[in-house]
Design a protein around this nucleic acid. Structure first.
Lengths: 224, 224
DNA sequence: ACAAAAGTGTTAAGAATACACCCATGT
DNA sequence: ACATGGGTGTATTCTTAACACTTTTGT
């Protein structure tokens, strides 16, 4: 069988989230070529023979947005879509990944105009089926923050409880009760206060916290 | 770029679960060719250009196990693995799917010896990375029965509460409390008693139940 | 003194858990 | 009459949800 085998086009698409001004944003690029020239799209591209899907992700991200994969604090594969090919051949298979980061500035690169983080609440029309991929990623993130500490990847190393709560609110898209949030989150024993306060603005300084462990932890008792 | 593009080998692997004698079983085939000749493996194969991943699944299942995809009562994509190729070329990308069914008998086909449902608790050594794929699928199923009615796909249309509980126990791998299970499951309002009893054996006949709705339903209030 | 965000507890309702006996049938 | 699996309720603990005022700072 294998001697006549021809593989379908394999592509790779990325949903990179970041919190900016207490808003959840996603990294988009403006396509410089047909198809969908001039439209906003997720940064994505071809996955060539010899490259694993993470190799492809690394290359695509760097080429299209100037972001190094090592700058992402959390990466997870999402789903593999049967989709429209990037070229006129028609059908393609596209593996999508979600990445979480903080404080990243995408760079203008040769192959794309204007990589930029756009608030998820206010997305422009996207090329291909990318709107549904963003949606899928957002839902995954929402459920993941519920049963893990993955929010660490979107926060600075030292953060206040208000910043933490605000991250959850940005991800869920709704407000949470301050006292209940603090009580519940502290009971998970994922974070501890550090010997430092955040002094900023004309108000009482805030206790800073840090996560107890680096990396992903899965909770038995879910959050929200 | 696309004129020099060569795609990696794309394959497709299936984890088909079924309940047999109150045990969760998974469909395996004995490989007739190298590599891993003579070893047990998941039914899988090539995904060729022009075929969507579900096209590939349909073909692979029918060819290797004689099972029609339409006989599966639930299908869900699991994960896409960077893995060892089925041929000596090395690297391949493999999309895996989970399927749930009941009362299916796999058939001996030209391309495989002995497709057979094997208890998940007592798996033989598997080819490739298939042991970890089965494990991944099992975890997905365990979490999915918790927040959905997906267990319907493994049960007959009419079933007793004891059969339902036994399905959960087979999936979780541990016993559940009878009174608490019944109280909790009935409170979800997914099933209703029908006007029929199951009479079987020298004991009190059992009330039969049916799911209220066909197809997958997601719960807000999780199960276990 | 005031504006602004930080911090803090209690009550009530609902959910989860632990647990043991009687019921209806076939042989 | 007995063996077999079907069926049922209560009390306790834990979790969730609703809710408002005081504290500390900078200006």
């Amino acid at each position: 069988m294998s001697y006549t085998y021809v593989a379908p086009t394999l592509t790779e698409d990325n949903v990179i989230f970041q919190l900016i001004n207490n808003q959840l944003t996603v990294l988009l690029v403006k396509r410089g070529k047909e198809p969908f020239k001039g439209q906003w799209a997720l940064p994505g591209g071809y996955n060539a023979a010899g490259d694993t899907t993470t190799d492809a992700m690394k290359r695509v991200l760097l080429t299209k947005t100037g972001i190094k994969m090592s700058e992402l604090r959390f990466v997870e594969q999402l789903y593999t879509f049967d989709t429209v090919a990037r070229d006129p051949r028609g059908h393609a298979v596209s593996v999508s990944y979600m990445g979480l980061c903080r404080d990243l500035e995408p760079k203008h690169t040769a192959s794309t105009e204007n990589p930029v983080f756009v608030p998820v609440k206010d997305l422009p029309e996207l090329a291909y089926d990318h709107a549904s991929i963003v949606n899928y990623a957002h839902e995954r993130l929402q459920s993941k923050v519920n049963y893990s500490n993955v929010v660490f990847a979107l926060l600075p190393d030292k953060f206040t409880l208000t910043e933490l709560q605000s991250a959850y609110e940005a991800i869920f898209g709704h407000k949470l009760d301050k006292r209940n949030f603090r009580k519940k989150f502290l009971s998970l024993e994922l974070i501890s206060p550090i010997k430092k306060l955040k002094r900023e603005g004309a108000h009482r300084p805030a206790q800073l916290y840090a996560f107890n462990k680096q990396g992903l932890q899965i909770l038995t008792r879910s959050f929200e």
